[in-house]
């Protein structure tokens, strides 16, 4: 099953369970979604529940907030996070705040989902990542789906839960293959241990998890150490428990993120490690992040602006040698 099919299945099942679930966004209905996530759903549930909106992101999220107030469970699709910037007023001032500032009288059971990140030469205005901003907004749950199983379970949970959820996907993951495990219940707030290890904790999320996993065999071989790879999954709240038990074991932490390093999300993890886990640290924490530049169009430059498996490997090897890891 493909990642986008898993998302489709999650939406489909949620719509089946609850007739209050509606999907809105640009091209989500008759067209089937820009990344084919909502493919086939309009023929099953009708245009009333798969609402094709104008290209007006502010209204997509703003209307979803109103739909949630009016008793529906809207799932808003924004074509990419870059366009979601037009809706940030609605996301931050309305979606995130109504529950708190009404002292819990208003609940907003809604999801805003979008892909983000560097794909293939989509250039400056279609390649950004904004998990760092969204995770900094109290009141928003932020999930980042890096694999098929999590994509299915977490999205279904998000749609059927009563809280506003930002659901982050990645453009390069839509055709990733995987299986859904229907026998095990998945806690979407729990970080996923992708690979067990005992010497280095590597924390990542979204597409970078795959890049880390590609780099790990060579890192382990050359350093003679084993890496524990953790996919954060829930970016807000963070599953510090899983991180803590891993870091206590390894004493060394590396955070890999695709976004710009300045003000990037990984800084939060490193700050936590320094503040809360200082005496467990046996090496200086390492952050591998994107360059602080606008994402360029040219493929060579584009790849140089984000971490690649080669860069992850080279940086961790150099860091390992320097820190006696």
């Amino acid at each position: 099953m493909l990642y986008r099919e898993a998302l489709n299945r999650a939406i489909d099942e949620a719509m089946e369970i609850d007739s209050d679930v509606v999907v809105l966004g640009e091209d989500v209905g008759l067209y089937g979604g820009s990344y084919r996530v909502t493919e086939g759903l309009v023929s099953k549930y009708g245009e009333e529940r798969l609402i094709d909106t104008p290209i007006a992101e502010l209204s997509i999220v703003g209307n979803a907030v109103g739909m949630a107030i009016g008793g529906l469970r809207p799932v808003a699709e924004i074509m990419t996070v870059n366009f979601a910037l037009l809706a940030f007023d609605q996301i931050i001032n309305h979606m995130a705040k109504y529950h708190y500032m009404s002292a819990g009288k208003i609940t907003l059971p809604m999801v805003v989902r979008f892909p983000q990140g560097v794909s293939r030469q989509l250039a400056a205005q279609h390649s950004e990542s904004y998990e760092q901003m969204l995770s900094a907004v109290p009141g928003l749950i932020v999930f980042a789906a890096s694999d098929v199983n999590y994509a299915y379970h977490a999205l279904k949970y998000a749609i059927l839960s009563d809280d506003p959820v930002i659901f982050i996907e990645h453009e390069l993951l839509y055709n990733k293959k995987g299986e859904i495990d229907l026998n095990t219940e998945l806690d979407p707030f729990k970080a996923r241990i992708v690979k067990k290890g005992k010497d280095i904790t590597i924390v990542s999320y979204l597409k970078m998890v795959d890049d880390v996993m590609e780099a790990v065999p060579e890192i382990e071989k050359q350093l003679g150490k084993s890496c524990e790879v953790i996919d954060l999954c829930s970016l807000n709240p963070i599953d510090f428990k899983t991180l803590e038990s891993s870091l206590k074991k390894t004493g060394a932490i590396v955070v890999v993120e695709e976004d710009h390093k300045m003000g990037g999300y990984g800084a939060q993890i490193v700050s936590w490690a320094a503040e809360e886990m200082f005496y467990s640290l046996d090496a200086a924490p390492l952050r591998i992040a994107g360059a602080d530049v606008t994402i360029p169009y040219n493929r060579r430059l584009e790849l140089a602006s984000i971490p690649t498996p080669e860069e992850i490997k080279a940086r961790i090897l150099a860091w390992g040698a320097e820190n006696g890891v």
Partner: peptide, 26 residues
């Protein structure tokens, strides 16, 4: 509310000189 249990206090109060990682100092 803390998500993390802090290290025991006496480990934080050590005055250790020399070049070492935090964990080594502790």
């Amino acid at each position: 509310k803390k998500n993390v249990v802090a290290e025991p206090a006496e480990q934080r109060e050590v005055q250790i000189t020399g070049s070492a990682s935090p964990k080594a100092r502790a």
